[in-house]
């Protein structure tokens, strides 16, 4: 994962994945503001997601029992709390989930969220 391109480079060329149809200026600027964020290992990213899930997903079970593969919806996350989670993830990782990614299977576990964020970061970097 590489970080640190100046914002200008983001306007060069087409996105490498169909996930984002057209990265607009706003998302480019947002990403440039994310430059201080250090590159993370997968484990660090999942820990960070885990903390955000703990704060926002309002699960009905004890959080200690939640593993990376636990289905968060089955653990009590509602569509309302999933929206709060999505917004918190966007803030913490400084990105925007495109509409096509706002799907139940993307947010169903810490693993699937990490996978989605990684894909987005690859496209946006």
């Amino acid at each position: 994962m590489t970080c640190g391109y100046p914002a200008l480079f983001l306007f060069c060329g087409a996105p490498t994945s169909p996930i984002i149809a057209s990265p607009d200026m706003k998302s480019a600027i947002r990403i440039s503001s994310a430059l201080p964020v250090e590159c993370q290992t997968e484990a660090q990213m999942k820990d960070k997601i885990r903390k955000i899930v703990a704060d926002h997903a309002r699960l009905g079970v004890e959080f200690e029992r939640v593993e990376h593969s636990t289905n968060l919806y089955r653990a009590g996350m509602t569509s309302f709390s999933s929206v709060a989670l999505m917004i918190a993830l966007e803030n913490e990782f400084d990105l925007e989930f495109p509409d096509g990614m706002l799907s139940r299977n993307v947010f169903e576990s810490i693993d699937s969220i990490a996978d989605a964020i990684e894909r987005l970061q690859q496209v946006q970097s």
Binding site: S79, F80, V83, M86, E90, E96, D99
Partner: peptide
């Protein structure tokens, strides 16, 4: 109410 929440993240 559901849509009000969903539209906080859905942009299209």
């Amino acid at each position: 109410a559901t849509n009000a929440a969903l539209l906080l993240v859905y942009r299209e």
